Amino acid sequence: MTAFGQGERWQSALMLLHTVRDEDMQPDLVMYNTAISACARGGCWMEAMVLLDLLPQVHLRPEVITYNAVASACAAAGRWEAALSILEALRDKDLATAASYGAAISACATEKAGRWQQALLVLQMLREDSQRREVLSADAVAFGAAISTCGNCGQWEYALHIFCEMQGHVHPDVVACNAVISACEKCEKWQQACFLLAEMGGFGIRPNAVTFNAAVSACGAAGEWEYSLSLFQKMQLAGLQPDTISHNAVITAFETGCQWQMVWQLLWEREQGGNCDVVGYSSAISACYRARSWQRALLLFQRLEERQLEANAVALGASVVTMTTGDTTNMAWP
């Protein structure tokens, strides 16, 4: 059972649980907790809820770990109402832990839920409850989840406010920093994203690839291709290897800034490394199209097909216009 619980084999965990019951043996709470955890990892929130409701019928009393596992399953599925109801049940018994609040906030944080107001209310509950229960305190996970919720819902000001408040309770970690920078990225607040990246050193936190990718993307979306390129280069100087997301963010920045020559060069370098995808090609095709470099746009589309990548609407649209507009002869890949 423990092996099933550590993975995502929730069907096997449930089958084993039912087999034990069919053999007239009474599964203990540990077995139920393990099965619920397996359901949580498999994103099966309804099955986890059914098991929770079954416990009183078999004369077992759920523990905090039981409730938290079910709340995590609800959070993974974006079932914020169910997660909040579990939190309320734990609060009524003074059993809620920081993980309980974190699961409820995470449930509100998913794009499917998008309940940033509820996330802030849960964070407020955590702050208030921690004042009357010394064993309870807001942790980095709860703050990070609340920041992510606000960022996903376009509330970057609230995300930044929570990040500032967090510093009075716990030391910010790289996850929280990434969450607030990503919130700025989603709202195209590139100056704030760059400022937060620069301030991370003051917290003794080393930025990772996720941090740089978010900041580069924020600058790119705003057409600040010089800043995107500078951050891309700083990322490499910091000993971090740019990934597909990094390259695509810079290419998009070049496209937005009408720098098709730089798009062309960076894409060629990516091809040498063998890590070019359809997003990179599409941005490059769009950049060449906008610059009226018809030949290059068509050549890039041909390269995309040669690499057996499925063109998206951007690449198809720009290429169709190119073939009906410009001269597409005598062009070669560098």
Rank of each mutant, 00 (worst) to 15 (best):
C74Y: 14
A332D: 05
A332W: 12
A145I: 07
Q265Y: 05
A103N: 15
L237C: 08
Q124P: 06
F232D: 09
E199T: 01
G274S: 00
W268M: 14
G7H: 03
N178F: 01
A107D: 12
D24Y: 08
A103G: 13
F4M: 06
V50C: 03
A99H: 14
L160C: 12
G102L: 12
S228H: 07
P172L: 05
Q236F: 01
S217W: 01
R79M: 13
L54Y: 05
L29T: 02
D243W: 04
C219P: 15
L266I: 11
G114Y: 07
V64E: 14
I105L: 04
E8T: 03
H247F: 06
I36E: 03
A35M: 04
V170E: 13
F163T: 06
Q11S: 13
M166D: 14
T2D: 15
A193I: 12
L126R: 08
L54F: 05
K93T: 03
T2E: 15
M25K: 14
L300Y: 13
E88K: 10
A35F: 01
S286R: 14
V141Y: 12
T256A: 01
T110M: 07
R292V: 07
K112D: 02
M15G: 13
L60G: 10
E134H: 10
L299S: 00
E23P: 12
A13R: 03
T211W: 11
K186V: 02
V263R: 15
C177F: 13
S148Q: 11
L14N: 13
N208F: 04
Q308L: 13
A3M: 04
E128H: 13
M49A: 00
V170M: 12
I147K: 14
L229W: 07
G239L: 01
L196H: 12
R79A: 10
V64H: 15
P27A: 02
A218W: 06
A107K: 14
E47K: 06
G239Q: 06
E199I: 00
D94A: 12
M46A: 05
A209E: 05
A297W: 00
A76G: 09
M25T: 07
E81A: 03
P207A: 03
D92S: 06
E271G: 08
T256V: 06
A75F: 07
Y158M: 09
E310T: 07
A209S: 06
M235A: 09
E63C: 10
L90G: 06
T324I: 02
A221H: 15
S228A: 15
C108W: 13
M323C: 09
R206K: 11
